[in-house]
Simulated scan of single mutants.
Amino acid sequence: MRAADAGLSRLAFAALVAGLGVLLIAVLWGGAVYPGYDHARQFMSELGATGAVTGPSVSLWGFAPNGVLVTIFSLLAAWILRRSALAVVACLLLAGNGVGMTGAAVYPCDFECSRSDPSVAALLHDLFGGLGYLCAIVGVGAAALWARRTDAPLLAPLGVVVLIVSGVGFYGVVAELELRGLYQRAMEVALAVFMLALGWALMKGVRGVRA
């Protein structure tokens, strides 16, 4: 591994850990101070919604930095894996997830993420959030395909599991099932686990096709 890429790998992993950490803290804090909030039945976006007591804090100090840092991680990973077109595409799709989170922070949903007479900001929130999740899911699938030909054998099966969990979670979010909050968190955790595994593999020197 080139020294420059080794340094970028560590920087990328640090950005990812910081991004996931700030999101976790924001959601836990927001859920604790939001009256009657139910993590299992309510979207995370409700914590950053317009009019919510936690709205500006969670959006600006939780969702936005998470999106920016995940984007940074993904773009650095794309550069490190630049010798593989499939890996670059996968990482750019993962970056789309970060961009989606950032956009969803800039344009919060309406109070309690109500769908009745949605504002322009709420429509943009759903657009950014939905496209971000779709990019992440497709990106994990592409990364799993790429990982099959690398010297990081666990990434591929992990990617398949994450693909299934995140696909089911996305369905629960879109269909707004009763436990939609749980479905969303399962998807978020699954995607986070895969990105952490990818970041760790990069630090350990995975770059391309195994011999």
Rank of each mutant, 00 (worst) to 15 (best):
R41M: 07
R148K: 09
M203L: 15
S45R: 03
G167W: 04
G103C: 10
G51H: 03
S74W: 03
A211N: 10
G129K: 00
L191E: 13
A105C: 11
R180C: 05
Y171W: 15
E112A: 08
A15C: 15
A52M: 09
L47A: 06
G7W: 14
F63A: 10
L23S: 11
V88I: 12
C113R: 02
D38M: 05
L81G: 11
A18M: 00
F13R: 14
M1T: 08
R10M: 02
R149L: 06
L123G: 00
R207G: 11
W79V: 13
V168Q: 01
F13T: 13
A14C: 14
A190H: 01
L191H: 05
V165L: 01
G172T: 05
G62L: 00
L20R: 07
A136Y: 02
Q42W: 13
P108D: 04
V53S: 11
R10H: 14
F73Y: 15
A52F: 11
R207F: 06
S57Q: 11
G208K: 04
L23W: 13
L92I: 11
A3L: 15
L16Y: 10
I25P: 00
V27I: 14
F111W: 12
V140M: 06
A12G: 00
E46A: 03
A211E: 13
L75H: 08
D151W: 08
E188W: 13
S114N: 14
L75V: 15
V33W: 09
A18C: 00
F194H: 01
L47M: 08
V70P: 01
A87D: 01
M195T: 03
G21N: 13
L47Q: 08
V173G: 00
W200Y: 14
M101T: 15
P118F: 01
A121L: 01
V173T: 01
L155K: 01
E188M: 12
Y37A: 05
A85Q: 11
D117T: 04
L24Q: 10
L177S: 06
